[in-house]
């Protein structure tokens, strides 16, 4: 087992590194097939006030006068040593610009994850233990959450709680309540898949023999849930949660814009408008890195948490296929 695990871990780590490098190259290619020459357009735009010298320096730095594959190679070799380039708008290093706004997005994403988990576990518990009618209603929640885009939830929350009830100010966008509501808007759609999988797992575990035995021995519902059903049902959810990272980061683009927060998401929005390609590329790569690393950790931790998982020879035998799982096990 230990040797198997080491081999498995090594293979997964290597895969992750390859995927990150490929993601960087992929983003580069997508961005540089842009029609027109936005880099030069941005640089030559008098509004940005680059001097001729600076332009020459930046063009030389990015090798913009050389063919695309040479640019790709030099860009990749800079990326490997952690150099993400210079913003075309501000002239600051991209890493610094991203670093400045990273904190706000991390706070938002973690709060949203918290909201999503509370919602998911609450809904799953209710679906299992509340009276049948309520339970059936709760079972429709994942589907409903999946149908509500975060910008609609955000706008409704702002309209009701900020404009009508005056609970928070949209201007004080980083305040506690404002962050909470932003997290709710971002968290609700994210909770859908977690809830779906959790409900299905709970149904499955509740039907197992050990659960019947525990019930027949007179164990109360809540204790049965907490002591016996919760752990085996929520373990597989670890991998589903890891998959929500992408949704959290993607959703932040809109949520931050609506709630007027400055974070990675609003930086994406701004960089798209100003065609600040190095920043855009850095953020997309960063998102891919976060996604790959979080999922790598989930994959590596999962076999340790759940001894029932056997490590097979194929690519991802240790965990269920991500979204297929949610598809297949959905009620």
């Amino acid at each position: 087992m230990n040797r198997d695990y080491a081999k498995y871990a090594l293979r997964r780590v290597l895969q992750a590194v390859v995927v990150i490098l490929l993601a960087y190259m992929f983003t580069f290619v997508v961005i540089s097939v842009l029609p027109g020459d936005p880099v030069t357009n941005t640089l030559r735009n008098p509004q940005n006030g680059f001097t001729e010298e600076e332009i020459t320096r930046i063009v030389a730095y990015y090798g913009l006068d050389r063919p695309v594959y040479v640019q790709l190679w030099s860009s990749l070799s800079r990326f490997v040593v952690g150099d993400l380039g210079v913003s075309l708008r501000s002239g600051l290093p991209v890493t610094r610009q991203v670093g400045e706004v990273l904190g706000s997005t991390v706070v938002l994403a973690l709060s949203a994850l918290g909201v999503a988990l509370v919602l998911a576990f609450g809904t799953a518990f209710g679906a299992q233990y509340l009276p049948r009618r309520v339970g059936r209603l709760l079972r429709a929640f994942p589907s409903l959450f999946l149908s509500m885009p975060n910008f609609v939830i955000g706008l409704v929350l702002i309209n009701v709680f900020a404009f009508q009830l005056g609970l928070f100010q949209v201007i004080d966008s980083e305040g506690g309540l404002a962050t909470f509501f932003a997290a709710v808007a971002l968290g609700i759609p994210v909770s859908a898949r977690v809830t779906e999988v959790l409900i299905a797992n709970l149904d499955h575990e509740a039907g197992e023999e050990y659960a019947s035995v525990a019930r027949s021995r007179g164990l109360g519902r809540t204790r049965l849930f907490l002591r016996h059903l919760l752990k085996p049902s929520s373990l597989p959810v670890v991998t589903v949660i890891a998959l929500t990272v992408g949704e959290l980061l993607g959703g932040a683009v809109i949520t931050e814009q609506i709630f007027g927060r400055t974070g990675i998401g609003s930086l994406v929005e701004r960089s798209v408008t100003t065609q600040d390609l190095p920043v855009l590329q850095a953020i997309v790569t960063l998102a891919a890195i976060v996604f790959v690393v979080v999922n790598l950790v989930a994959d590596l931790v999962y076999p340790l948490l759940d001894p029932r998982v056997r490590l097979g020879g194929t690519t991802s035998a240790a965990r269920p296929e991500p979204r297929d799982l949610a598809e297949v096990v959905a009620p």
């Binding site: 990150i20 490929l22 993601a23 992929f26 097939v33 992408g246 949704e247 959703g251 809109i254 997309v284």
Partner: peptide, 25 residues
Amino acid sequence: LARLVDVFLAIPEFLLAVIVVSSLG
């Protein structure tokens, strides 16, 4: 192809859509 697909899955869907649309117009 599996690694290629991994790349598609690793970039958050919405971000991927954003960079593609900004690159197409």
